[in-house]
Design a protein around this nucleic acid. Sequence first.
DNA 1: GGACGCTACCATACTAAGTACGGACCGGCA
DNA 2: TGCCGGTCCGTACTTAGTATGGTAGCGTCC
Lengths: 229, 229
Amino acid sequence: MSVEASEQRQRGRLSRDGVLRQAVAVADAGGLASLTIRSLAQALGVKPMSVYHHVANKDEILDGIVDIVFSEIDLPAVGGEWRSELAGRARSARQVLRRHPWAISLLESRTSPGPATLAHHDAILGTLRTAGFSPELTAHAYALLDAFVYGFAVQEAALPFEGPDSVGEVAEPIMELMSSGQYSHMVEMAQDHYLQPGYDFGDEFEFGLGLILDALAQRFSDREGARRS
Amino acid sequence: MSVEASEQRQRGRLSRDGVLRQAVAVADAGGLASLTIRSLAQALGVKPMSVYHHVANKDEILDGIVDIVFSEIDLPAVGGEWRSELAGRARSARQVLRRHPWAISLLESRTSPGPATLAHHDAILGTLRTAGFSPELTAHAYALLDAFVYGFAVQEAALPFEGPDSVGEVAEPIMELMSSGQYSHMVEMAQDHYLQPGYDFGDEFEFGLGLILDALAQRFSDREGARRS
DNA sequence: GGACGCTACCATACTAAGTACGGACCGGCA
DNA sequence: TGCCGGTCCGTACTTAGTATGGTAGCGTCC
């Protein structure tokens, strides 16, 4: 029995929360595929089966880390100015999903929301309702904004390159495929726009977000006007 | 739902295309998790290792079935009226992703597009450019519409219930969680709106799609006007 | 028509992952 | 002091991907 074991072998060092936070760290470091019970146990300094005394199974770990990710998203302040509050939460959500890209593929498969997820949804609904949105428009706005945020995250995750200016490197094999003569519009757009220096796909986020919020504000004030007259 | 092959033992009955189409059928029937080399081989009426003579590995299968899914989406007609063409392809994409919900989680992880995927993107870019959209606005519109379609599909896939009117059944445990006193806005929205008879989350799709297309038309005509004056 | 060899298919087996099952250890309490 | 319950772990079973090396049936050429 090695007394000098680097990590203090002691009882009670594990907890459900510690396990989940370490799971996030492992996924951040190596992707979802690298998160196994065995790798997680090693990161925690324990043996695989010890993990099961704090979570029922791997699915519970996945549900748990999704909720941790949601907890990192800034909540809109209920009662604040709806447009800036929702813009802020959308930007925060995007940042969080960029930080934890593995979470995106979990969003659609996890159907049991945790407390942070519920609190998040509640704050958004509250912000809209308190600002005076009708239930119908609240539901519309919520679904639309969330779809945009999630969908944008999916797109960013699927990009074969990372960030601006590094596009050129990976473009070779794709350009080859496209140079078959088909895909002429993609080639044109790539050359005239996407591959231009300074183009950053991430900028499309602000365009889309602004467009959606503008249009929602329009519908909102239309309704307000109709109600007032 | 009978996926098993009833074909006799004979040479040459397999092909890359047949393998991929059967893989789609298996995933449709039992979800992505049920698609294993062994289950696929059984559905094809062969032994597991036979599959590997037509695809290099499982990743190639996943890439392949994503491309099959894309091939099922109606292409917009380049040169047609952009608004209706893009609305049509968005609706078609949603239908296809509802038919193959397992494909959603693959969208973000597969970074090597197949020919159908490329043709699809090309047609959308072509529709916008031919309609007179600038490269900038084309990139904006494309990213925004795709984000919405994908994000909406993610949301629909994550719903714990299926279709309208079946909401009530599954709502019990969630209502329980929410009745802790927190989540008051969710409770209000659930009671006053989501749980009302006839509410269908799917209807949010048309609202969002219409709003985005309206707003894009606005920006398009603004630009047109500026150019003309 | 018989040997050859190509290609499609398969038997075996190795590795890795989730997890069932029961045991070992430790600290507290009667 | 001896029991107890909460933690942690050793072992092993099951399923999945796939490396390696056959084998069998068909076309080809003498």
